[in-house]
Design a protein around this nucleic acid. Structure first.
Lengths: 151, 151
DNA sequence: AACTCCGGTCACAAATATTGACCAGCACCA
DNA sequence: TGGTGCTGGTCAATATTTGTGACCGGAGTT
């Protein structure tokens, strides 16, 4: 309590952690990654990301817009198209976010093996063998279901 | 639809996004950052991070352990001490996570200005001026309260 | 004897995420 | 002329996650 000479002690932690919660958010990362390539329209992103609900997409985009990372442009065309693009700030965010996404992608198989091993050593070796053979998980959902059953 | 030559198209997206949800999680980031410096014990972390409930700390640590990023060691001493440390995988995760945390810390003031500006241009300029003068927000909670009032 | 710290777990309440329906306008197709 | 689908959303209800406070046993402290 009386001691906090740590580099990231309480006062900063609070504000940083709040922002981290948004910036490191699952959907935020995916949206930033998507917009990094090129600006997109609403449903275009929805389709590409896949698995995101309209509401979450709307909400996350609105938050990102508020934070000044995404610019929202309404083209008053026949069917009103709304284009989302990364601002300079958003583009600077894309750097660490991309790093995180790349790490995630690179270590995904390893983590699935770890999970299987943790959940029950029984079939873990088999799964590990499978992974060795295939180099990558064929359909990640299968593994997820397996672990859910065990939990 | 018929076109998805994108580097991160749907099938992978699902698995990646699930993992991103954990890896980019607010508490995960803070825990990894804390453990990056040195291994810690349970209540030690709880005190240092501050604002995390026991349950969330337990839960997050358990998840990290399952994913093989954190090693849990129980010292069967007089009061059983539990030490958490980053595994090699965890340490490799610390790299992008640190990058994200650093970005967050660096751009925190800017984002607070953006938010204030978005919420109501009225006091935004004043806030911006304040920020210019101080170089950093004195107490972030104040700004948060302001924006909450507006929403 | 009463209190506190250790590392949790449990049940419950509150916040948050996701689902699915719906909206209005226009285009395409038959 | 009516059915279908696309545009970018909003809304209510529900599922999931997160946070709260109490409790646990054992040991040391006062």
């Amino acid at each position: 309590m009386t001691e906090n000479p740590h580099p990231h002690s309480n006062p900063d932690c609070r504000a940083v952690s709040e922002l981290l919660g948004r910036v490191g958010d699952k959907w935020t990362v995916l949206i930033v990654k998507a917009l990094e390539a090129k600006p997109r329209r609403f449903n275009e992103m929805k389709r590409e990301i896949g698995g995101i609900s309209q509401q979450m997409l709307t909400r996350t985009l609105k938050t990102l817009e508020r934070d000044g990372m995404v610019a929202r442009t309404v083209h008053a065309t026949v069917p009103p198209q709304v284009e989302y693009a990364l601002t300079p700030l958003g583009r600077s965010l894309a750097v660490p976010v991309t790093a995180l996404a790349d790490w995630t992608f690179a270590h995904l198989p390893q983590i699935h093996v770890n999970r299987a091993a943790y959940d029950g050593g029984a079939s873990a070796s088999q799964l590990a063998a499978l992974l060795e053979l295939r180099g990558k998980i064929t359909w990640e959902g299968d593994l997820d279901e397996m672990r859910r059953d065990r939990l």
